[in-house]
Design a protein around this nucleic acid. Sequence first.
RNA 1: GGCAGCGUAGCUCAGUUGGUUAGAGCACCGGCUUCAUAAGCCGGGUGUCGCCGGUUCAAGUCCGGCCGCUGCUACCA
Length: 701
Amino acid sequence: MNAPTSRRILVTSALPYANGQIHLGHLVEYIQTDIFVRFQKLRGHDAVYLCADDTHGTAIMIRARAEERSERDLIAAMREDHLKDFAGFDIEFDHYGSTDSDANRRLCGEIWRSLRDKGLVVSRDVKQLFDPKAGVFLADRFVRGTCPRCKAADQYGDACEKCGATYSPADLVDPVSTLSGATPEIRSAEHLFVQLEPMQGFLREWTKNSGALDPRIANYLAGHFLGEPLRDWDISRPAPYFGFEIPDAPGHYWYVWFDAPIGYVAATDEWATARGGSWKEWWHRGAGEPAAEIHHFIGKDITYFHTLFWPAMLEAAGLALPTKVRIHGFLTVNGEKMSKSRGTFLLARTYLDHLDPACLRYYYAAKLSGNIDDIDLNLEDFAAKVNSDLVGKVVNLASRTARWLEGAGLSETYPNDGGLFAQGAVDGAEIAAAYDECDFARAMRLVMAAADRANAYVDAEQPWKLAKAGPESAERLRDVATVALNLFRQIVVYLAPVLPELATETGALVGGPIRSWEESRHPLTGVAVAPFKPLARRVEAAQLEALVAASKPATPPSAPSSPSSPSNPSSSGNASVTTDPAEPLAAEPLAPQCTIDDFTKIDLRVARILAAEEVPEAKKLLKLTVSLGGEERRTVFAGIKGFHDPAALVGRLVVVVANLAPRQMKFGLSEGMVVAASGAGATGVYLLSPDSGALPGMRLH
RNA sequence: GGCAGCGUAGCUCAGUUGGUUAGAGCACCGGCUUCAUAAGCCGGGUGUCGCCGGUUCAAGUCCGGCCGCUGCUACCA
């Protein structure tokens, strides 16, 4: 029963680059980190979540130029966007800084001096392509040209996508700068390098034995970098460059990857200073009691920086090393890389326009198991999982029992529940262990198992019958509902790191704010229960469709419908045009715009009804057999019973969706769908018929 | 091209150091229920564990090859 020993835990997420908006891929990391930190805080630990915008580098400089604004103006605007998006997803940083801060400049200087003092900095000339028109050195991806090996046109500066050759940008035939179109010239410039080879022994030991890395990662590093001499790390860029000028090397700037991780320390500095402390309490070895843990959450793409460069820098500077580098995979949507053209490049903002952030937080939690596999956001699965778990199992528990307690409140003593609450409390240890290892998927499975038990309890006790049985059952009813609501609140405590909003609302329903994991150990008794308000809403397919539609690239400017256009009679005021009632359209607004590609996915065919029979048990269905021409027959269940006489349908031509996935219905397999018009408020269902002459099997274009 | 990860039920995923008959949730099928936001409960596994070969008394698990998917590729893999 004693509270867990308090730990001091500093947690970071990778710094988002100030050159783009937050998307759902980013959020895999920020949501994951936020859950971890909220969990640690709920457990009573001294945890702090720090992050910052990563603001420097060529890309920012070039974009600022293109937009004819200053870099600082650009990064200030991006920062605001980022903060808004994070807040929208309930991601709660203790401090959110910027790499373009005074604190960061100062700390970069301090760590730089340590590297200099250790003799790790060397200077060397580097030949690089230079864009004379834009006046900047060009990273490989800003140069395109013809592959020197296979002569494929329009290849990047470092490798050919066609033949796979790798080369130096200087080898490209007819190189062109993608910035200005100018022909780049080769220029030589001095760069500063940090020697890593002297750190090889340290890195080999740290990656393998510190416990900071998953053995798979340690193994990967051992086999690919630590087996051979480590190359020097090019750490400076010549002017012009948006970043910090190196104090003892005028005209040279720290490369963005030097100042970015130091941003973690700078954020600590700003946060600690504001509350009267110092960053040294967290980053100095042996400072503070107990020793602080440092956890970095990162994506697998930046493994190299966080497991070799960064620890080497910290080691050289004599600072504390990461306790854990927690590496996660990337996000795919519907099994594929996010794609703008498919509408699966989902921005945080767009998601928030259509859906509840809690749904994504839960879905990610249910899929994150702490390893480096990519995770897939399957939109159908997303809706099914959220609806089934959150709405059907968890929230429904309160929804189906809270109302019986509105007047009386919870029972004065906790009733016999067959050990359910006690079992839930015991499970808490296992759930906590899963959270602590970032195996949130396992935590969610355990929580849902608890919810299943609770629902089974309610079902067995049949409180609805007690409610009807009259006053002599009132106490029993109160007891059953008391158990159910306590089991619900226990589950919500376990879900609080993932679903802070649900935790807040549950606190308002019964028992007050949830502040500690310990609240899962003791049932509430004798307290009031507020009127029940819906705690979560189902995800509807239409919301997902709208999200995808809104994520497609801006459609070519739909010809602004000019009111005077003669082809647009409804707005021409022409008296000869009859005005139809507006209700049908108003009742069911237009679906989001789709492309011709979307449309052609749906194969509409003319079909002839060969047979139509009643399905006696069905309220709405008729069983139709239709011909698509030749021998192609389909069985289709159509929801038109009561509007059409089966006998009158036989022989008639209709339109069917011919490539619709078969659907198992209660009365048999339906192999298509007959198209019909209907609408809110309308009473009938109106089948479509082609003009005479159409033949079964013809496609609608 | 190089490197890494993955490939288990219709879908999303668990499967610990190789060890009975390969699991969960969802979906689906059958039954029950009607308090609840079309929610809930009971029952049913629907599978060539990507393919081929090897090690072993025993392989989803270890080894080799192949295929497929995904990601990364720091001025240098």
